[in-house]
Amino acid sequence: MFAEERQSKIAELLKNQSSIKVNELANIFEVSESTIRRDLQDMEQRGLLTRTHGGAVGAEKTSFEPTFNEKSDEKHEEKLKIAKTAINMIEDGETIILDSGTTTLEIARNLGNKKLIVITNSIDIAAELSTKENIELIVTGGTLRLTTRAMVGHITEMSLKNFRVDKAFIGANGISIEEGVTTPNFVEAQTKKAMMNVANKVYIVADSRKFNQVNFSVICPIRAVTGIITSSDLDNNIVKSYEDVGVEIINC
Rank of each mutant, 00 (worst) to 15 (best):
A3I: 08
E4T: 15
I10G: 05
L14R: 06
K15S: 12
S18W: 13
S18K: 09
K21N: 14
V22T: 09
N27Y: 12
I28F: 05
I28Q: 07
D39E: 08
D39G: 15
E44K: 07
G47N: 09
L48H: 10
L48W: 07
L49E: 10
R51A: 06
R51V: 13
T52I: 05
E60R: 15
K61N: 09
T62S: 12
E65D: 12
N69P: 15
E70P: 09
E70V: 10
K71C: 12
S72D: 12
K75Y: 14
K79T: 09
T85M: 13
I96T: 02
I97R: 01
L98G: 04
D99V: 01
G101I: 04
G101M: 03
T103L: 14
A108T: 04
G112F: 00
L116Q: 00
I117N: 02
I125M: 15
A127R: 15
A127P: 15
E128D: 10
L129Q: 02
T131C: 03
T131W: 01
T131S: 05
I135Q: 06
I135P: 08
L137D: 04
V139M: 07
G141Y: 02
G142P: 08
R145H: 09
R149F: 13
R149D: 07
T156R: 07
T156P: 05
E157N: 03
E157K: 03
N162E: 05
F163D: 09
K167T: 14
F169A: 01
I170K: 03
N173R: 12
I177E: 04
T182G: 04
T183R: 00
T183A: 01
F186E: 10
A189Q: 02
T191Q: 09
K192R: 13
K193P: 03
M196G: 11
M196A: 14
M196R: 10
N197P: 11
V198T: 13
A199Q: 05
K201M: 03
Y203D: 00
I204K: 00
V205N: 00
A206H: 01
A206C: 07
K210M: 00
N212D: 15
Q213C: 05
V214D: 00
N215F: 13
I228T: 08
I229Q: 06
D235P: 00
V239E: 05
K240H: 08
